[in-house]
Design a protein around this nucleic acid. Structure first.
Lengths: 242, 242
DNA sequence: CGTCGTGTTGAGCCGTATCAAATTCCGTGG
DNA sequence: CCACGGAATTTGATACGGCTCAACACGACG
């Protein structure tokens, strides 16, 4: 039932760093389980103890923080190849929630064996650190979006980033890309109200910049969208995968 | 001239993880330099190549991202013990800018020797990853602040966090703590206008929650401030230092 | 064929931005 | 010691982007 890392197609996408055979073999042993999560299912819950680290094998979800009064901040969209719960794995307690939006399959790792990874497989530890640093940089960009960009720029930025990531994962087909989230999720990610997000999406659609409907996103000209987003074009985006 | 890691007092603060003697000895060898940066001086510049990783030994600064049209997002305030440039060290190019606010002293490490750290000193690699994950979590909280909190809550949150961090570093004296930034810096960190930040600070001062003037911050009752900030109280904040 | 979740649209208002002008603070030179 | 200049802070007046409230539309599903 569990996918064998050796034959895993995800890892072989050009957007991920290459791995040696011994690394792949190690990861296959390091992986303790593979689980399926249904849409809406929780992967981890903010504030609850957890000893696990996950990697997204397929499907999409999101990570979020909620304030004590219930307001929710979506921190990132979890796509295939993403790491979930590194922080939790280090501290033993989930600091954010993660839930599935579509059916997801996750590779499961045990926090108690993390130390062995650092001791015996420095290349893998290096990859893990790289992934954490990558995520840190992304969150910095997101901060700049919430703090400095207007609603139009922010929505354009988010759609451009997602379009790019999904393309890198080879998930485009017929000129569009799957984006199975609700407008409320995007609103919560950008700190905008649902209503305003909706109106902004409509405006971008009317300008022919991005069309997100029925769970699919179409971006006819990503450069144009990135110009609207005032997003400095990113360099190489090839990154490690666990 | 350079501080010897073995006698470095910063490392010995209770808010940092303990290090073995051999780890300390290794870090002392790993450290290639120690530099002084004057107020206003640049540590690294967004988009420029850099091969260095820094740790703040003393003084304060800030890390920021700037959009192509000049708007600036302050991503974090750099206090003693903080890591600067992990991302740059991994990719070879600075993805954010960092500058000194007060005179700073920085420990300097070479990115080309990072791999050696992972290979020969897994405990140190573990600490590095922990630090990156810590920062990632902080940025998630910051994101929640910009996205969900009102201006009053946001300012209260920022002051509470800074007060706490500065206390942990033992920098309090006479019931207050040094905070040598400009209001503009806080405004840029929270995505607020300078004017509104100023008025919000005045309101918090009038309510007796926090008084930040003349480069010093006084928080009579941090719990009260955290209540206003709607900040779930943090767990243990002891963390690794490089 | 009602109900529920999601998306769409309009009207009005509020929190925060912007603009403008003091005022205080501080370093520098006379 | 005082005069000056520039930066930072403070305050007031006004404008607007995005929020809230309120309907309504649509499709999925029982």
């Amino acid at each position: 039932m569990p996918t064998d890392c050796r034959t895993c197609l995800l890892r072989q996408r050009p957007c991920f760093h290459r791995m040696s055979e011994s690394e792949v073999a190690f990861m296959d042993r390091f992986k303790i389980d593979e689980i399926a999560v249904p849409p809406g299912g929780a992967i981890q819950l903010q504030g609850h103890p957890t000893g696990r680290l996950y990697t997204v094998l397929s499907g999409m979800g999101l990570r979020s923080l909620t304030l004590e009064d219930g307001r929710r901040q979506v921190v990132n969209f979890a796509l295939p190849g993403d790491l979930i719960g590194l922080n939790s794995a280090l501290t033993g307690e989930a600091r954010a929630s993660a839930e599935a939006t579509t059916p997801m399959r996750l590779c499961v790792f045990d926090r108690h064996r993390l130390w062995g990874l650092f001791r015996d497989h420095p290349e893998r530890a290096f990859a893990l650190t790289w992934a954490a640093a990558q995520e840190e940089h992304f969150l910095g960009e997101a901060l700049a979006t919430l703090g400095q960009r207007t609603a139009t720029e922010a929505v354009a930025w988010a759609l451009a980033v997602l379009d790019r990531r999904l393309h890198d994962l080879g998930m485009d087909s017929g000129g569009s890309v799957p984006l199975p989230y609700r407008q409320q999720d995007l609103a919560d990610a950008l700190g905008l109200s649902l209503v305003h997000t909706n109106k902004t999406l409509a405006a971008l659609r009317a300008r022919g910049l991005a069309d997100w409907r029925g769970g699919r996103l179409t971006v006819p000209d990503r450069e144009a969208l990135e110009t609207v987003a005032k997003a400095p074009e990113a360099g190489s985006r090839v990154r490690p995968i666990l």
